[in-house]
Design a protein around this nucleic acid. Structure first.
Lengths: 417, 417
DNA sequence: CTGCCTTAGTTTGGCCGCTGTCCTTACTGC
DNA sequence: GCAGTAAGGACAGCGGCCAAACTAAGGCAG
């Protein structure tokens, strides 16, 4: 026990346990990399001794994170190594998402195998904050029960919301599209789940979590995730970490002034980026007949894609125009942040082939630092599913960052956690 | 010794030494905070035990970073504590700067007391890269000799350059205002200094180092440093660390498109921020008679300030206009990065009272997230001296981050490093 | 001014985690 | 078979932190 455990301020002191945690994470990270890894090989790549690696690997196996894949390196002289690989089949991370017109749940094990993936239509505005969280809790309870039946332990839940979230408390301060204000999502969710919800619950902005999902797929140090649906938003990753800003309001790209002579924006000014590349703008310009039809951004995106694939000139032209303005907006981000990649989510993902060429053209002509600062612009492979994936992976990453978060399980040489 | 010390990849493994380093830094950071600190108080605030704190403090004293200030807490019952304070008088950090028309050297001890501060006019373009570095080396050698005579050990040298620097190698890739390309500044400096230069040499961009200097003065987690002289640049700090981007080209704010209908810019487009708030633009608009007069930005800034203080309407109007465009540019940064503070350097610092009101007005009307995202805009207290201060403080901070970087010195219980 | 109380700082023994060395294990090649 | 080679485990040792006991130094009451 610490003396006066109360008065401590700032970061906690460093102790031996931190050394262990760090080295467990280091070894686990190496094992996650593709290719065979024996204990001896891990010792060589990590710089730890074989004895230490053996001890660390034993603990990772006891925690259910690693298993011996029995196979052995052949063809070379010497005793063959016992290969290790990521296990994680008995540990799951849950991602949730609250959208304006749907709820989503996705469960993955720690090796990223999909255990369940559901998406149900739901009018969150109509249901109100309490109703929406209750409905989400029910979906979650089902998922938890299902995983429990399969003897899979859930290590945490990551919730994506279309608004500003306080990470520390799990409260949504403000979500314009849901008409929410100061909703204690994490608390209410935990409360509704009862004992079943006795796991870590993390709430974050949808664009942030999407950016993390993309970052995990393609770990460039600096990544910009640009998305559009009802609004336009961005998730920024700088040097491997989310850039949240002083009060959590980073990534407000929707109202970048790109065309002062342009049309009026809801914010009161003219020519904001949103008026050029927002979903409403493309539909108006490229497919006006859909204006009052389906309200779901995902369906609209699919419709646009279909028409583009069919070669409809009006849609193609509108998308090319979107690409141009997207390139202008992107070039601002590139000149400021110099990311290693720009990933397009939301409806952009569906129509990427029709907007990226124009965007790249524009970016090339506007990148101040020239070729050295130009990065690729790609459509997200996850599309509208990025946020819920990000929710799950941010939870999974907690275990990879601190493997002691995975409880020890029974086995030879059982010990207490 | 590690086995196969060659094949290691990624971060080095965590060991006990890292624990020690971390806790030394933790305790030292606490001692740097104002107010009296006894060993017992440090134990309480850090969460370490008294025994450990005693051991850590003893080491910090042996390394010359801390001293007992003899004074003792009075008036309360119990044995009075021996107060500790930052020493660092025998350790110095050197900041250097290469400008287009000056060279600067600043030496501070680790308690940030100024030991020397020189600035000499020098035409770096005319002298060429080799000539400029040689001249800088001579200034540095003098400074080093002077400090050595005073028995002060120099722990490192931080060099600010107006261009893109490769931190790892200490090479300047490209410095447009100096007409430099691929100049190995650190290597050449070390070479010229000979054995005297057997210290860490770090080279970084002038705006980055300035941002760090401002950040040290006012440690908000997210800070934007905006500067203008010949060009316009920015140094961005996100979550306490410099935001460098994937290839080092972050902070290119000079060519933000703010007025497509505006005048032509050197970059080939129209209405770039630089054409609105660059020094050339203000002088042209507010004091055209100075256009071909003194070429030094610092003198021009002083002249503008004088005229503004004297109430010259033309200058005041030009500066107000600069403030407006500055506010527009700043609002883009604020909406994207949500900084906790925006600090104005370069010539802005001299005329801050005349540009900030208009800038704040513009920012207020354009911050998408409203009051919650609005931050203060202030003139730098360091002005043109920010970069050289940043160079010194980035070196000093290395010691604070890893106190074992300060060599052990003779004393009771001498040990080897 | 003496003795108790309180708080500061040191000493000592113990634990944890990594290192280095030695040993066993297991397979290839001759 | 038997040597050679590499993997993996056992064990002593060391650095670093913790807990508890101890010494040090002052206030305060009687």
């Amino acid at each position: 026990m610490r003396e006066h455990g109360d008065a401590t301020t700032g970061p906690s002191p460093v102790d031996q346990a931190a050394v262990r945690r760090g080295n467990l994470a280091r070894v686990l990270a190496e094992i996650r990399r593709p290719g065979g890894h024996s204990r001896a090989a891990l010792a060589a790549t990590t710089g730890l001794t074989k004895a230490t690696v053996s001890s660390l690997v034993a603990e990772l196996i006891r925690r259910g994170l690693v298993r011996e894949s029995g196979l052995r390196q052949e063809g070379v002289v010497g005793r063959p190594g016992r290969l290790l690989e990521l296990d994680g089949a008995s540990l799951a991370a849950l991602g949730l998402e609250i959208g304006a017109n749907y709820l989503a749940v996705r469960g993955v094990d720690l090796a990223d195998r999909v255990l369940l993936d559901r998406r149900v239509g739901f009018d969150a505005v109509r249901a109100g904050a309490a109703g929406a969280v209750d409905e989400l809790a029910e979906l979650t309870a089902d998922a938890l029960a299902e995983l429990r039946r399969a003897r899979i332990e859930v290590v945490g839940i990551g919730v994506a919301v279309p608004g500003l979230a306080d990470i520390a408390t799990g409260t949504v301060h403000y979500a314009p599209n849901l008409l929410w204000q100061d909703v204690p999502v994490a608390d209410r969710l935990r409360e509704r789940l009862g004992t079943a919800g006795d796991v870590a619950v993390l709430v974050d902005n949808e664009a942030n979590l999407s950016a993390l999902a993309e970052f995990r797929r393609d770990p460039v140090t600096d990544l910009v995730y640009l998305t559009a649906g009802i609004g336009v938003g961005a998730g920024l990753i700088a040097d491997g970490a989310l850039l949240r800003g002083a009060t959590g309001f980073s990534g407000e790209v929707g109202h970048l002034p790109v065309d002062p002579a342009g049309g009026a924006c809801g914010c009161g000014r003219h020519g904001c980026l949103e008026t050029k590349i927002g979903l409403a703008a493309v539909v108006r310009a490229g497919a006006p007949d859909l204006l009052d039809a389906p309200r779901d951004p995902e369906e609209l995106a699919a419709a646009l894609r279909h028409r583009a694939e069919a070669g409809q000139p009006r849609v193609l032209e509108a998308l090319d125009d979107v690409g141009r303005w997207l390139g202008i907006g992107t070039s601002i981000l590139v000149n400021l942040l110099n990311p290693g990649a720009v990933v397009l989510g939301g409806y952009f993902a569906a129509v990427a082939p029709y907007v990226v060429p124009a965007a790249m053209r524009e970016l090339r002509s506007r990148a101040v630092a020239g070729e050295a600062a130009i990065c690729r612009i790609t459509g997200s492979a996850f599309g509208f599913g990025a946020a819920v994936r990000g929710g799950a992976s941010v939870i999974a990453d907690r275990v990879f960052d601190d493997p002691t978060a995975a409880r020890l399980r029974a086995g030879p040489g059982v010990e207490s956690a």
